[in-house]
């Protein structure tokens, strides 16, 4: 015959009520925090996954920051190169003008002064600094002014890259040598040497003045082509950064969705659980109250 001890009725009821209260407290905490996982034991794999996903999210946010900084630097370089191209165009026009036989020595002297002015402007452009005070065209020696007053290159060939994505490193600068000296092995063929030679010739023309002018025009064109080639490269890098930024943004959105899928509470499901837990708790309480009323002692006179 099955017997039941009276204490068991109380123990079972209070355990049932306690269990329901624990379930209720849990769903309450989930609703309050919006987190599905309250401690790692709730979902060990999900917890570990969230850790990795958030690390990845942090890295992609950092890539976006790297891209912003790199874009800023490359935009400065792009406009500097554009300005330098304009200066070369002006030098070209002045050379054509000076080559005209109708000009006298005094006129050419004025043009020489303008060329010297262009030289000095070009030097300023070549020694441009970015927002952090780093020289744009000094290679790795970014705290060293890349071109001295006579246009000699003081920097190195270093080219810095930044990480724009997991698989994309983008160079964010070009050495002054690459930009302003067409033939790195021969500094006398640089932009500054060309402008110097031109001004010298205009101030004191030699016997083969027209040959020098023709030569200068050729060299100015070469410099211009070189600048444009670098500028195209910079444009391509900016485009690559832009593309990567879009790719990164898409991935960040995807990461956030995944993080939300893994870690965030499904509110409708939790609300259902809340009402179910409340219902079951009430049922447990009601059944306890009605069962504990049942006693033979109630009927003893």
């Amino acid at each position: 015959m099955l017997r039941i001890a009276t204490s068991l009725i109380y123990q079972q009821s209070s355990k049932a009520i306690n269990d329901r209260q624990v379930a209720l407290a849990k769903v309450q905490q989930q609703l309050a925090t919006g987190n599905r996982i309250l401690d790692h034991a709730d979902d060990p794999v999900g917890s570990a996954r969230l850790l990795g996903l958030n690390e990845e999210l942090g890295r992609y946010n950092q890539y976006q920051r790297n891209i912003d900084l790199a874009s800023g630097r490359l935009n400065v370089e792009d406009s500097t190169l554009g300005d330098a191209g304009d200066l070369l165009q002006q030098a070209r026009e002045l050379t054509l003008q000076a080559n005209n036989d109708t000009l006298n020595t005094e006129d050419r002297g004025f043009i020489a002064m303008e060329i010297r002015q262009l030289h000095s402007q070009m030097l300023n452009l070549a020694n441009t600094r970015d927002g952090d005070g780093e020289y744009l065209f000094a290679g790795f020696k970014s705290h060293t002014q890349p071109f001295d007053a006579s246009g000699n290159y003081q920097g190195d060939q270093g080219q810095r890259s930044i990480q724009a994505g997991s698989y994309l490193d983008v160079p964010v600068g070009d050495s002054g040598q690459k930009v302003f000296e067409t033939d790195p092995s021969d500094p006398t063929k640089g932009v500054f040497a060309t402008l110097d030679t031109l001004a010298d010739e205009l101030e004191s023309p030699s016997a083969n003045f027209h040959n020098v002018m023709a030569d200068t025009l050729t060299r100015l064109d070469q410099h211009f082509d070189n600048l444009n080639a670098v500028r195209t490269e910079v444009g391509a890098r900016l485009k690559a950064l832009d593309d990567q930024q879009n790719t990164n943004s898409d991935f960040v959105v995807h990461l956030r969705e995944t993080i939300s899928d893994v870690g965030d509470l499904d509110y409708p499901e939790a609300a259902t659980r809340l009402s179910y837990a409340t219902f079951v708790l009430q049922a447990a309480q009601q059944s306890f109250v009605s069962i504990q009323k049942l006693s033979l002692f109630n009927y003893m006179g």
């Binding site: 996903l53 958030n54 690390e55 890295r59 946010n61 950092q62 920051r65 780093e134």
Partner: peptide
């Protein structure tokens, strides 16, 4: 042990982000 918002994990991420910041502007 913390989670992705507290404890070691964010400190590690932020440390490497700071390394990247130096890579952006080493000078």
């Amino acid at each position: 042990l913390g989670d992705s918002q507290t404890g070691l994990s964010p400190a590690l991420s932020q440390f490497f982000a700071a390394v990247q910041d130096v890579a952006d502007s080493p000078a």
